[in-house]
Nucleic acid binder design. Sequence first.
DNA 1: TTGAAAGCGCTAACAA
DNA 2: TTGTTAGCGCTTTCAA
Lengths: 350, 350
Amino acid sequence: MDEPRSAAAGTAPTLEDVARVAGVSRATVSRVVNRTRNVDPAIQETVRQAVAAVGYVPNGAARSLITRRSGSVALVASGAGEGQEEEFRTRFFTDPFFSRVVNGVMGFLRPRGMHPVLMLAETEEARAEVIAYLRQRSADGALVVSTHADDPLPEQLVAAGLPAVLFARPARPVPIGFVDLAHQEGARLAADRLVGQGCRRVAVISGPLDIRAARERQDGFLEAMARHGEPLVPTAEGNFTQASGEAAMQRLLLERPDLDGVFAANDLMAQGALHILREHGRRVPEDVRVVGFDDSSAAVASRPALTTVRQPVEEMAAEMARLLLDRIEGRADGPRSAVFDPVLVVRQSG
Amino acid sequence: MDEPRSAAAGTAPTLEDVARVAGVSRATVSRVVNRTRNVDPAIQETVRQAVAAVGYVPNGAARSLITRRSGSVALVASGAGEGQEEEFRTRFFTDPFFSRVVNGVMGFLRPRGMHPVLMLAETEEARAEVIAYLRQRSADGALVVSTHADDPLPEQLVAAGLPAVLFARPARPVPIGFVDLAHQEGARLAADRLVGQGCRRVAVISGPLDIRAARERQDGFLEAMARHGEPLVPTAEGNFTQASGEAAMQRLLLERPDLDGVFAANDLMAQGALHILREHGRRVPEDVRVVGFDDSSAAVASRPALTTVRQPVEEMAAEMARLLLDRIEGRADGPRSAVFDPVLVVRQSG
DNA sequence: TTGAAAGCGCTAACAA
DNA sequence: TTGTTAGCGCTTTCAA
């Protein structure tokens, strides 16, 4: 099998080269390469052979200079801007949540020949870079995973007229698409489960209350408990890390040593709660039932495995990508959104 | 504060527009934007103001058409090609290892204005796509995280003359740069620790032995144990997942119910071992000591926290990126590599 | 130090 | 159905 000589050679072959070899014009080669109709099958074959012979690969820059498409989308991890860059990165990447988003996004993008470019936007400078990146058309749009309610990035994107879709509804009403979960509904599922299993003295480990999802999970849970005739439910705030879940559980145990049920606003914190409960000699689920949230890898990794409220992150991420492409390719008129329903996944802990 | 009118308008402003406003030529604007020397400070200022006034952002495609640089690198998750796409993705993304690589890569790339594009290469088709992506200059080079010894991608990259650096030394000697860990040395650290703590009946949970790193960790451990006068060490093979660690621990316990030490080739499997040991009423570290490998987030997440061999993944990933940029920017002559030293991190489990 | 002009490689009207 | 031609927006000689 002949190796195309040009592969390792100095200059990459261009359309021109293929055209010369095939004995046709550049335009025809372009049509064949881009699968445009209206090309004589015989010529098509000739061109394909010429392409193979010279080892031609279209130049992406030249192509997107004219199509105004880069073939990639920015996948942005956006934060509030208070933290250190490295700490933010580590926190973000350590959480299984982010991996699931990446997974779901790639699943959708890949068959469509598009690729995600990872970006961080936790400082004003970084946000400006993201905006500039999009404005210079290095990416066709942005998928934004935002961690704070007062993140200014969504509004900046809208102001710049850039295609973007968020994971989680924006804090202030902004004309931008998003995917989200019915968090309150999910929390209600957890409350119903705990009560249904006979728990009467339950407590909540919430996420950071400046994150909308965290607040909705807490509110939904408290509301459901109130409906069950339990208006007084102690709460402790964590920050979605396992360590914060441990600390919160400690506080809760001090406040209410006789508790028999815990709802944690994510699995990582639930896992932390499990550790502390065991240290204090509480058996799960016999003495205390624990329900988590997310159904992340942490849910099956812990012992006992977590009963948890499933957030279909991969599907949501895929939908987010779909909404963005619809927008980019002009299929969508205004910003569109999708809200997913949570499901209770019963395992051992609750 | 005036908003640049063109931001949300139909067409983005070009160099031409800036030049007109500033009353200079395109070339001069280009020089100012690209910080080239030899521009009159006064003119420089005028140009900057014009840039701000029209809200100019250079067009990336036009720029890279001529510079032949895209400003991004492919971050490739490469597999052997036997598995299902989705399973591969999920496995890969669930492992904290990948997140750490991304984290380290971004830490290095970001200050240099470069961005990672995520790609998968687990089938021949996907590999071809990666190669094409690089050949069409959509990325300036590739960072490859390979999971199997017989992965053909490294050789394909070399054959195509594309800049690339691997995480982990290639199976067959190929002229390509890589970063790696002294795995055998790390395993020796684990063996010394277990023996030093008085363990006499130890066992190994290895990774998939078709992965070089897994084999080296096992070999290094067995060799060290032999030196300690323990030539017979039972082993069980896992696949680096927690579930496989559990299964392996079950088998080991059956084979050697009186074991008092376990070395697992990664933390996830060690975590699985911990679960099984507890189920069987073995206390860790009192009855059985457990040492993991990696020092990933799983190491601090488990109870007891894992004593483990630290692999500085973030640093290694950053170095991988550095080696690639050196190559891309022509600072490196041939392929260069770096091998890192592991360190024992003592926590509770061993 | 600045400007004029020539392309980088490609796609898309428009003609033939 | 095919070819011709005109740029896309930028960088970079080469002259001035």
